[in-house]
């Protein structure tokens, strides 16, 4: 565990999480949520939880993003907040 790497990734996780909730376009929010999940996966690989990391990479960053994109395509893309 290298604490500098972990620190940078923790910072990026918070930034991606806030950005995913801040953008007004729902498709961008879905893609930013995918980036958040992938940062989380890298964080777990750094922290030594490799099994959790590759489950999150396939399930969290892959399937969740596809679910969100499919749901946004079938509903509206715009939002007020």
């Amino acid at each position: 565990m290298i604490w500098q790497v972990e620190f940078i990734i923790l910072f990026l996780v918070i930034i991606c999480g806030i950005a995913a909730l801040w953008v007004k376009d729902l498709l961008s929010a879905a893609i930013l949520f995918g980036a958040y999940s992938f940062m989380m996966c890298i964080l777990w690989a750094v922290m030594g939880a490799v099994d959790v990391a590759f489950t999150e990479a396939s399930v969290g960053a892959g399937v969740s993003t596809i679910f969100f994109v499919a749901a946004v395509f079938r509903t509206s893309r715009r939002t007020k907040d």
């Binding site: 995913a20 999940s37 989380m40 922290m47 030594g48 939880a49 907040d81």
Partner: peptide, 27 residues
């Protein structure tokens, strides 16, 4: 948040934070 998709994203962020808590405990 007013939009339902944004609420669901918030729920997922909550869940991953709890997972991060547990993985941090095992470190």
């Amino acid at each position: 948040k007013n939009n339902l998709i944004k609420k669901i994203i918030g729920m997922n962020i909550f869940q991953t934070s709890i997972i991060l808590f547990y993985v941090s405990m095992g470190m």
